[in-house]
Each structure stands twice: as C-alpha cells, then as structure tokens.
Design a protein around this nucleic acid. Structure first.
Length: 475
RNA sequence: GGGGCCGUAGUCUAGCAUGGAGUGGACGCCCGGCUUGGGCCCGGGAGGUCGUGGGUUCAAAUCCCACCGGCCCCA
C-alpha cells in the first residue's frame, strides 16, 4: 500500500479496490468489472439477504433490461426524475427503432406492466417479488468504484398489497431486514429514518433509509425502502376485486440495496494495510500459511496445514491454504492482509512440534497460539470477536460524529471541522432544505422515525421549527 | 452546475517548456540459481498503435483542436 487512509483517503480507497483484487475499470466511463474476490463478497451479501427475503415470504424472479419509453413515462414524477440519467437504445442493428427503449434505471414500471397487470382478485395478494440484476444510470461526474458507477449490481424488491396498512408494514419490515444485514453482517452501524421530500425516491409517497458515516466525514446511503402508495398502481391500473365485490386500486412498495455497500465496507473497516473484511462476508475467513526452512521439514508442515484446512472446512469455516512456493511467508502475510482475510494461521516446525497453531488477527494485528485440540473453537470465537470488534469500532466512530447544533454558524463549523451527521432543527420546508444544501453542501439524510425534540428555531429561516433531522454531505 | 490536473511496457514514473531514431528508472512478468517466522538476494531475458482521431511541420510522445477515459477542488 502506497497511500495512507488518514492522509489521502480517496487515493487510499482506489488503491485498496485495485490491490485487494476486488474490481477494475471497464472501458465505458463509470463502469467497473468485478474480479472473483470482489464478486464473492457480493455473493455472500446476497446470500445473507436472500435468506431473509425468503423468510419474509419473498421469491426471486426476473425482468428484462429494456423498458419502452411510453412505459417509463406512465408515472410522471418518476419519469422526470430518472430521465436525465437514462441510457437509451435507439437502434436495432442499423435500423432506427420506432420507439426508443430505456436501459432500466430501476424496474418499477416494468414490474407493474407485468406482475401487476395480471392481478384480478384480492386472493392473489400480496405479490412479494425480488430481482437481482444490474441497473444503469448515467453518471456524468465523480464516479467511484462501488460508490457511484453508471452500472451497478443490486436487488430491487417489489411488492403489491391489498391495503395501505399492509404496504406500510412491508416498507418497515424490509428496512429492518436491511438494518439487520448491514449492522450484523457488514458490521456497519446506521441511522434509520425517513427521507425528506427533497430526497425521497421520485414517485414515492415516502422513503425510508439507512445512512452510515464514512471515515472522511461524508455520509453514505446504505439501503432504501419506499412506500409508493397508489402512485404506480393507479397509472398502471393495478386493481383487484375485493371480498366486498368492489374494485380497488392496490398499494405498493419497492426497496433496494446495491453493491455500494461494498464501498462502505472498504471505507469503514479498511486500514493502512488494506482491506479488513468482517468474517460474515469474507470469502476466505482463515488463510493457512505454511512455513518451512529445510526440505525435511516440508512434508510434516504441509501435512499439518492440510489437516487444519480439513478440520476448519468441516466445521463450516471458509478456509484457504496458500501453498504457493514462489512467495515467502512474509510476502503472503502482506498479500492476505491487503485482501482483508480476518484470520491467518501460521504453521511451521514450531507448531508441528508443539501441537499448536499460531493465529494472527487482521483487525488487531495480534497473534495468539492455540493447541490443536481447541483449534476449531478458538477460530470460531475469534471470528465472532473480530466481527464484533469491527462493529464496535464503527459504532464508536458513528456516535462521535453526530453533532447537535442550534444555529447555521454552528452547523457550518461542525460540518467543516468534523463532518458526519449534523443534528439540527428546521421548519421542514423544501425551500429551507434547498437553501441549506446550496449554502453548505449538506442535505437532510435522515428524519428519525420517532420525532426528536426541537433544538431551536429553523436554523435557516428562523421560523418555527417542525423537524429535527440529521444532515450531512453525502457521497 | 463551475474550475483544475492527468493519459508513455502489466503497473508507477522520467522525457514534453525549447519538435529531431521508443531514450531512461522502479515494481511486476519469464528463465536459472539462492531462499522461506513480515513484501529476500544474484544473474539473464521478454515486453511499446507514447489513450483515439485530425491538424501544423521536412520531422510530433512533445505544439494545436476534437473526442474517449481517469483524478482532484469548489457549489
């Protein structure tokens, strides 16, 4: 690693992405390709989410990537919001198309035109579906791998319900699923709440969000869950015949989480040696490094390494033996630390003779020695401890980066000096929110679900404050 | 939205001001040897549309224009 996290955060981030073997730039502006190691992290995140999606009654399905313009136009606000960043397909071969086709920026419209269109009866509700796919939104300026790319991997959940109440419960249920995965698996603590009118999803009645603070003081949206009310079901005529014999418009939600969270993991947990992966999403949880000076030691060392791999593997731990002979152990230590592997097992003549294994923690860079008999238990508890300590450190950082202010001056100073979340009260108007953004670059990130006490008059207009919100400069 | 910087071997970089033969360094890669408990060492070797296109010129990596791509700062 050439760059230090504390000195040049942006360069450091790009270096980790590249050197840890996660991703690289693809030829088209703002697009990246994922290497297997990076993709495996995504697959682990995906499996954690999939399990919870299934537990909450959702099933995975597929939608195509092309959306006719007329369909995208059906919900006016939605179209207006997305059209500046839509990629359009205008030709098939050399022939111009009669109607241009949008490369999906999100799939709401297609979903209602397909899954929604067939609904006849209240007995078919709710429809609970999730799509793992990629979406495209043209990013003209300031792209960053994972954090902001023109094409990104994500999942988008779409649901249709008979009643408003059911839809509202769904929105919260899925936000909680995200919260569980982000905090417990990615080890990133978040603030949860509503988006402001200005920041909500275009076409939503309201948006709920999870927001995290990054080490450079910027804040990052981790996942969102939207209550779409009847904003889509009315223009798309998603109606059902109820038990009362009447036709009713249905209610709907959508929710999504993208590979941007991988960017957050890199930023939040990484250090000057590279990546530090929470064990729950580490493709390799334990890497085994054989060490031997003389040829006659080699066989016994390798044999013990294989035995360790076998035992850990049988215990369900993701383990890898690095038996490459072209690199020295020291070289390998650096390599796997860069790649963020949580635990390293060092096995040499000393370990063979003493009937033990040396384990090195990636998070604290400390070593412990455990007897062969306690290996599996020790690895299990160390992995759990690493998972916990990464979360605790991030939690501490989050709490230290929430600043309560009572005036615009304090607001600007806190933002400048510390960054993170600035907790402030304002009148709740779009005008003041936009003015604060214009003046400071900070936007409303979260309005807590449980309203918090009003701290002052509106920090911008001085009028009666109605909302206490968490502001921040966002990625 | 506004401004700035950059693109030379797989990677980083010197060369560009003041045009003159792809001229140099580091890492990586390949071969041989020596090594292995924190990025070992020695010897040899391969690797180039100088981002793309156009212009100026006897001559362009170098000057000019456009485009593509990357980075940073401000709002």
């Amino acid at each position: 690693m050439k760059h230090k996290k504390s000195e040049n955060f942006s360069e450091w981030y790009l270096e980790v992405v590249e050197e840890a073997g996660l991703a690289g730039y693809a030829p088209v502006k703002g697009t990246i390709y994922l290497l297997p190691y990076g993709y495996e992290i995504w697959e682990l995140i995906r499996s954690h989410l999939d399990r919870r999606f299934r537990e909450t009654g959702h099933r995975n399905a597929f939608l195509p990537v092309l959306i006719p313009e007329s369909l995208l136009r059906k919900e006016a606000e939605h179209f207006k919001g997305f059209t500046p960043e839509v990629f359009w397909v205008t030709h098939s071969g050399d022939d111009p198309l009669g109607e241009r086709l949008a490369v999906r920026p999100t799939s709401e419209t297609l979903f209602y035109a397909t899954f929604g269109a067939s609904i006849k009866s209240w007995r078919e509700l709710p429809v609970l579906v999730n799509f793992w796919n990629s979406a495209l939104r043209a990013e003209i300026k300031s792209t960053k791998p994972f954090i902001r790319t023109s094409e990104f991997l994500w999942q988008e959940g779409h649901t249709i319900h008979a009643t408003k109440e059911e839809a509202e419960q769904e929105v919260m249920r899925m936000l909680n699923v995200y919260r569980e995965v982000v905090e417990e698996k990615l080890a990133i603590p978040v603030l949860a709440g509503y988006k402001s009118e200005l920041e909500k999803f275009v076409g939503a009645v309201y948006t709920t969000t999870l927001e995290a603070v990054m080490p450079d003081g910027k804040v990052l949206q981790m996942a969102t869950s939207h209550n779409l009310g009847q904003n889509f079901t009315v223009p798309f005529e998603v109606r059902y015949l109820g038990p009362d014999g009447q036709m009713h418009y249905a209610w709907s939600t959508s929710w999504g989480l993208s590979w941007r969270v991988i960017g957050a993991v890199i930023m939040v947990h990484g250090d000057d040696r590279g990546l530090r992966l929470p064990p729950e999403i580490a493709p390799i949880q334990v890497v085994v490094i054989p060490i031997h000076y003389r040829d006659e030691e080699r066989a016994a060392v390798i044999e013990k390494c294989r035995e360790v791999v076998r035992r850990l593997s049988e215990a369900g731990i993701r383990v890898h033996l690095d038996d490459r002979t072209e690199y020295t152990p020291g070289w390998k230590f650096n390599e796997w630390e860069l790649k963020g592997v949580p635990l390293r097992a060092e096995i040499g003549p000393k370990e063979v003779e003493g009937g033990r294994v040396t384990l090195a923690r990636r998070d604290t860079l400390t070593r412990v020695t455990v007897g062969d008999g306690e290996l599996v238990d020790a690895v299990r508890s160390l992995l759990a401890e690493i998972q916990r300590s990464l979360y605790e450190a991030a939690k501490k950082f989050l709490l230290e980066h929430i600043t309560e202010v009572r005036s615009l001056e304090e607001f600007s100073r806190a933002l400048e000096e510390k960054g993170g979340f600035i907790k402030a009260s304002y009148c709740g108007s779009r005008e003041c929110e936009a003015a604060i953004k214009e003046l400071t670059g900070a936007t409303v990130r979260v309005i807590p679900f449980e309203p918090e006490p009003i701290l002052s008059k509106c920090i911008y207009c001085g009028g009666e404050a109605r909302v206490t919100a968490y502001f921040g400069r966002a990625y």
